[in-house]
């Protein structure tokens, strides 16, 4: 469903439904009420904004896909080892000096 906000300007629930209908197989299009439910749920979670000065209300994405991804990665990469047990990263934070040492080691390995 999300793809729809990523591309375009603000849409009404009906327009969202029409786009979904044309994108999915015939007979599998969701009802407008379903779309509205999903939209309001997304609004509560802070993904979608609603402009109330027109009727029907128009919905738009608050952040682009790339912005969301950047935010997510920032959270993941700055989650230092002793803050939360929520995630496990493959390699933790590495300083510039250490990175150079590793690069030299890597060159040795690759050359062999």
């Amino acid at each position: 469903m999300e793809q729809l906000w990523m591309g375009d300007s603000a849409l009404t629930a009906n327009e969202v439904r029409d786009r979904l209908a044309s994108a999915s197989a015939p007979g599998r299009a969701p009802a407008t009420t379903t779309v509205l439910t999903v939209l309001s749920r997304l609004e509560r979670k802070g993904f979608v904004g609603r402009s109330r000065d027109t009727r029907p209300h128009r919905y738009s994405a608050l952040l682009s896909r790339a912005e969301h991804t950047a935010e997510l990665m920032h959270e993941v990469l700055s989650a230092s080892s002793d803050r939360d047990a929520a995630l496990a990263r493959f390699v933790g934070t590495v300083s510039a000096g250490e990175a150079n040492t590793l690069r030299r080691l890597l060159d040795d390995v690759v050359r062999h």
Partner: peptide
Amino acid sequence: LRVGSSGASAAY
């Protein structure tokens, strides 16, 4: 080695 030496995570 490759992920560690990419060093990009330090910026975050």
